[in-house]
């Protein structure tokens, strides 16, 4: 008796390919961490040997204490009061340097907070120029101020 031979299926099974591919897509979507790609830009001043010596009296000094209190020209101020305080001074002299000086123990966040507020100062106070922000480093303070 001749048996009818069953022909084996010669096709590669591709029906699950879509499932595999979508699984991969989902896996990559879940594991991708979105990189934070935004921040505040800050142009560093040129490190000349003879930096322009800023008279302390001509500038506004914002000191930041470790607990996050701001001393603007030796007087405690809230973060949202700083721009109001600066307004008359900057209107008289748009180039007046504003110096941010955190203590070494101050958390970095407070320095960024003040910097953020000062950067918005041009629009908030409707000034013609950007505020002249200066963040001297400890070394510069030691070598040029005292």
């Amino acid at each position: 008796m001749k048996l009818k031979q069953k022909k084996p299926d010669e096709e590669i099974p591709t029906s699950s390919m879509a499932d595999i591919a979508f699984l991969l897509i989902v896996y990559f979507m879940v594991t991708t961490t979105f990189a934070a790609t935004r921040g505040l830009d800050f142009a560093l001043p040129k490190d000349d040997d003879t930096p322009p010596i800023v008279e302390k009296e001509d500038s506004v000094l914002i000191e930041i204490l470790p607990d996050g209190t701001f001393m603007v020209d030796q007087k405690p101020k809230q973060l949202d009061e700083i721009l109001d305080y600066l307004k008359p001074k900057l209107e008289a002299n748009a180039k007046k340097p504003v110096i941010i000086k955190p203590t070494p123990e101050t958390p970095y966040r407070y320095m960024v907070e003040v910097f953020d507020v000062l950067r918005q100062g041009k629009d908030v106070l409707e000034l013609k120029d950007e505020i002249n922000i200066s963040i001297p480093t400890q070394r510069e303070i030691e070598s040029f101020w005292f």
Partner: peptide, 18 residues
């Protein structure tokens, strides 16, 4: 200290990521 190093190396522009 880092800002100081960057100034010494004459880096011109930095971004503070936030």
């Amino acid at each position: 200290k880092i800002l100081d190093s960057l100034k010494q190396a004459k880096v011109e522009l930095i971004y503070l990521l936030s």
